[in-house]
Structure formats: structure tokens, C-alpha cells
């Protein structure tokens, strides 16, 4: 109770100092917010590309219906498979005429339909990996009535290489930004603590235990972090609106990420303040 009262009172007693601390926290978290915005949109782009990863099983013209049904059942039994579509020779031709109008005349003049019947294997999200597509394609190639099973091997490999690079750079840069934010927050709160060194000294002198002295500062740090987090969200949102309106279409980060940002701000603030006050108490 005392800690909460003191933490709130600190905002009234030194609004400029606390405001500056919150501002520094906000700017540090703004960088993290921008990074999150970029990461999220990169993730969306990669997921959209990844959604197109599927295995197409081309069947021989003389494949019997019972064999097709058997293979349909086999493929549907894979836990990674979400749907299997049968595309007949006729469907394939219609689709080709529709999607490739420049070859329309060629398809019309041809007496024989040159396109094979096929099975299009769609995968569940999270399973569109090179391992899974390779395993499914490899499995169906063993059937004698399967002409070939393709999934754009090179393309999938490149996509996943890109994903790995994206993940690694997100992790490394994210950690670096978080570290920089923590250092800035810590410095800002150390300044706030240093400005109140007399108060800390007096509290010690009258018999306050270290935990008692620390608590209001940790709470104050959490509140400054929370205020900084709100500022960072506001700045990030402003940037998002600006980019959306004048540059290109981007998606706003999910509410969960915003919530996590606020919690992270409060935790960063509390932890940085805790470390700073602990260090200060050791020094005085």
C-alpha cells in the first residue's frame, strides 16, 4: 500500500523527471515496436507464399478409378494433409484454357487433351515444410500409376531458407533491440533514482529495510515502463498509419503483441528499476 502510494506520489512530485524516464522508455520501446511491425508483416508475406506450397501428383491416363480412390484415401490419411483435390483431364484442360488464355487456341485445336489428371495435395499450416512435401511426394512416387509428384523443390527450399534467415535475424535483432531498450530504460530510471538519493539515504537512516525502499521504486519503474509502452504503441501506430496512407499496405500488429508490448514495458521498467535501486543501495 505504502509502495503504491509512494510510486503514484513520485509522478506528482517529479513529473518532469518521470515524464523524461517514460519518454526514454517509450522511444526505446518504439524501436522494438517498429521492428515488431516489420517482423509481423514479413511473417504475413512469408505465410501467404507458404500457403501456396502443395504437392501435385500427376497420374497416368490409364489409372483406374479404384487406384485413384485408394491413393486419395492414402493421402487423406496423412495428418499433415488438409485436403486432396482430384483434377480430371477435362478439369485440367478447362483450367488451362481459363488461366492461360494465350494458349487457348492451341488447346481448342488439339484433338487430344495433353494434360494429365492429377491430385492436388493441400497441407495444413505449419506442415508446409520441405521435409513433409518431400516425404509425401516420395511416398506416392512408388505407385506405378503415378507419373510424377512435384512440389517445386527449389522454390520450397529457397522459401524455407528465407524463413530461417528471417527467423534468425528476428531473434538476433529482436534480442539486440530488447537489450538496448533495457539499457536505456535502466539508465533513465537510474537518473530518477539518483535524483532521489537523499530520500533513499533518509529512509535508510530511519531504519527502512532495503526491500521497503526498493518496492516503491520497482513499482514506479513498472508504471514508467507502462507509460513508455503506451507511448511506444502510439508512436508505432502513427508510423503504421503513415506508411499505410503514403507508402504501401501493411498490417497492424495483433492485439496480443500490443498487450505483450505493454507487459514487457512494465516488466522492463520494474526489472531495470529493481537492478538500478539494488545497485544504488549497495553503493550508498
Amino acid at each position: 500500500m505504502y509502495a503504491m502510494r509512494e510510486a503514484i506520489a513520485a509522478f506528482h512530485r517529479a513529473p518532469v523527471l518521470i515524464g523524461l524516464s517514460s519518454g526514454m522508455v517509450g522511444l526505446a520501446l518504439f524501436v522494438v515496436g517498429l521492428f515488431s511491425l516489420a517482423t509481423y508483416n514479413l511473417q504475413i508475406a512469408l505465410t501467404a507464399i507458404e500457403a501456396r506450397v502443395e504437392v501435385v501428383v500427376y497420374l497416368r491416363d490409364d489409372t483406374r478409378q479404384s487406384e485413384i480412390d485408394h491413393l486419395l484415401g492414402e493421402l487423406a490419411a496423412y495428418p499433415e494433409v488438409s485436403r486432396v483435390n482430384y483434377v480430371s483431364k477435362r478439369d485440367a484442360l478447362e483450367r488451362a484454357q481459363r488461366e492461360l488464355p494465350e494458349f487457348g487456341q492451341l488447346f481448342l485445336e488439339s484433338e487430344v487433351n495433353p494434360l494429365p489428371q492429377s491430385l492436388e495435395v493441400e497441407l495444413r499450416p505449419g506442415n508446409r515444410t520441405p521435409d513433409v512435401v518431400e516425404r509425401i511426394a516420395g511416398g506416392v512416387r512408388n505407385y506405378t500409376f503415378v507419373e510424377d509428384a512435384l512440389y517445386g523443390e527449389e522454390w520450397v527450399d529457397r522459401l524455407f531458407a528465407l524463413r530461417r534467415i528471417g527467423f534468425a535475424s528476428t531473434a538476433v535483432l529482436g534480442a539486440a533491440f530488447a537489450l538496448v531498450a533495457a539499457l536505456i530504460i535502466g539508465t533513465a530510471l537510474r537518473i530518477a533514482i539518483f535524483a532521489r538519493r537523499d530520500e533513499i539515504y533518509i529512509m535508510r537512516l530511519v531504519g527502512a529495510r532495503n526491500g521497503f525502499i526498493r518496492r516503491p521504486f520497482i513499482l514506479e519503474g513498472a508504471m514508467a515502463g507502462l507509460a513508455g509502452g503506451l507511448l511506444a504503441i502510439g508512436l508505432t501506430y502513427g508510423t503504421y498509419r503513415g506508411v499505410y496512407a503514403y507508402l504501401f499496405e501493411v498490417a497492424w500488429i495483433p492485439a496480443g503483441w500490443v498487450g505483450m508490448g505493454l507487459v514487457a514495458g512494465a516488466l522492463f521498467g520494474a526489472a531495470s528499476s529493481g537492478v538500478a535501486i539494488r545497485r544504488h543501495l549497495r553503493e550508498v
Partner: peptide, 15 residues
């Protein structure tokens, strides 16, 4: 802190 609570202190600059 236990000692500090048993001793009252007054300073020239009030603190």
C-alpha cells in the same frame, strides 16, 4: 536497520 531503529538521529542540516 535493526540498530538504526534503536537510535534516533538528528543532524545539523535536518535531512
Amino acid at each position: 536497520w535493526k540498530v538504526r531503529r534503536r537510535v534516533g538521529m538528528v543532524f545539523q542540516d535536518f535531512r
